[in-house]
């Protein structure tokens, strides 16, 4: 059951990721990226990271990607025109890519023999555990990222405001 769920959502993630890279119109890429993020959220659930899965959908798929979709709609960017691509690069590079990825997969399999992920194998990913770690061990990064977000808000406001007047 775990294997079936993993395979379904991993294949959806890879197909959507290929779509992000291959599609010409940015909005199709954006919707495919939302698909990647949603299927990754399910994979996080399988790994026991329930809070992170919810945060992924709320923050990444529900806010950041909406921002992307807004900008694409506002700029009204058309589809990208394809320039000439050297088929030699595709011919040599494609098989090389696949070979390197298979080599990587084999090495990783050797590094972690026999360890498998069961649903429910890791129970420490609940909101209580993440919150406890966030406010004790990782308190300094938490405060620093709050200042980072403030800087980002101010930067975005200044950049977006300068062109309006």
């Amino acid at each position: 059951m775990d294997v079936i769920l993993f395979l379904i959502f991993a294949i959806i993630a890879v197909v959507c990721a290929i779509n992000v890279v291959v599609q010409t119109h940015p909005i199709s890429s954006a919707i495919s990226l939302v698909g990647v993020m949603a299927s990754l959220a399910v994979l996080y659930l399988l790994l026991g990271a329930e809070f992170l899965a919810a945060a992924q959908v709320i923050v990444y798929a529900g806010a950041i990607m909406v921002l992307f979709v807004f900008v694409i709609m506002l700029l009204n960017a058309g589809a990208e025109t394809k320039k000439g691509q050297s088929s030699m690069a595709l011919f040599l590079g494609g098989p090389l890519l696949v070979a390197l990825l298979m080599l990587l997969a084999w090495f990783v399999q050797q590094l972690f023999p026999g360890i498998s992920v069961h649903f429910g194998g890791f129970r420490g990913g609940s909101a209580q555990d993440v919150g406890r770690a966030l406010f004790t061990t990782y308190l300094l990064p938490f405060e620093v990222t709050s200042i980072l977000i403030l800087i980002a808000i101010l930067g975005a406001i200044v950049l977006a405001r300068k062109e309006m007047d």
């Binding site: 994979l43 399999q109 972690f112 360890i115």
Partner: peptide
């Protein structure tokens, strides 16, 4: 019950 090998992730 078999799980998913971690190398797949």
């Amino acid at each position: 019950m078999s799980g998913v090998p971690i190398s797949w992730y």
